[in-house]
Design a protein around this nucleic acid. Sequence first.
DNA 1: CCTACCGATCGGTAGG
DNA 2: CCTACCGATCGGTAGG
Lengths: 205, 205
Amino acid sequence: MARPRADTFELQRDAMLQAAAQLFAERGFAGASMAQLAETCGVSKPLLYHYYRDKEHLLFGIADGYMDRLIAITAEVRALGLDPETHLRALIGRFMQEYQHSQAHHMVLVQDVKFLASAERIRVVEKQRQVVEAFAQAIARTRPRWTRKTLRVPLAMILFGMINWTFTWLRPDGPLAYDDMADVVTEIFLRGISRRSTDGDGEAE
Amino acid sequence: MARPRADTFELQRDAMLQAAAQLFAERGFAGASMAQLAETCGVSKPLLYHYYRDKEHLLFGIADGYMDRLIAITAEVRALGLDPETHLRALIGRFMQEYQHSQAHHMVLVQDVKFLASAERIRVVEKQRQVVEAFAQAIARTRPRWTRKTLRVPLAMILFGMINWTFTWLRPDGPLAYDDMADVVTEIFLRGISRRSTDGDGEAE
DNA sequence: CCTACCGATCGGTAGG
DNA sequence: CCTACCGATCGGTAGG
């Protein structure tokens, strides 16, 4: 009873975060103004500051919340208990599905995290590390015998390159579907890391 | 005799462009100030404006000049007259070598081209299209029989993802050498697109 | 939750 | 009349 508008509060807060993600993605964090954002949201600038302490707090909300979503996906897929190759396929597929609806959030994550203060930036980077680790593990499990330890993370980053770079060219309303892209990427990557490739030492079978 | 300091002029101009690339990469175009740049260069702000009309002109110089460099590399490799697979290997290798020394330029290209006015942005994007086309052609030549037309450019973008994403994680002074990364990427990609993969229609052999 | 403002700094240019 | 360059400050706008 003390806070009858709690639901509305959260909805309003989230709507502002979505609008901020869109604006930051378009103009960059430094290039976007709080006045523009207030206008987009149809509220006054002071009201914006009622929901978020400052501009950077909006940025942190976007990046941190998005990373929580990506970490949740890795956990959901892990809970399915799939065999290694199906597991990796599922990870790639689920991520591409998420990307299709999170273009703004992802662009903010890539280009604007550097504007966060040290403590907040470290929190976000640590969550990114968790996601990379989930992929590195999934990759390693498909080729348990040969993967060189030094290539564990680089292989994951190569895979992330293939799917994350789509933010520069793939459009949700374009001719190539995200699901098809996921299939193509999965095929290329699994074939690419198959027996003996990318590995020259004695651990190979 | 009329312009005895022409050489100095070009050197000074280029030094400013390098410093601007570094600063824009670190703080973003909108987040970097001309005062900071002038200080970094050890010159007055008005002198900066003597060499470059305005802030955006610096940005255009960085992006356009860098694209000229990348286009030149595709032309140099093409002039070698290599067989298809060696040609693609050479392209990847030469690009990774260039990337090792052009981190700032590439980050500016990816994150700040949106700040260019329409005409300048279109000029840069057109040069990017030329580089993508050079890669798409090189890829298609390695698998002349089966590559679906709809995947021509997407395959090139997948390859660019693998090498361009390195700007988010690979360090020139890190444990993994750029040359080794080029080898790993080339291996994965060539294996990945080998016979029948990523293609389900009758054109496959 | 608004109008009305602030200290500071922005990109760009004046006179000399 | 050109270039190369300075100290100081312009009109506007940023985050708050």
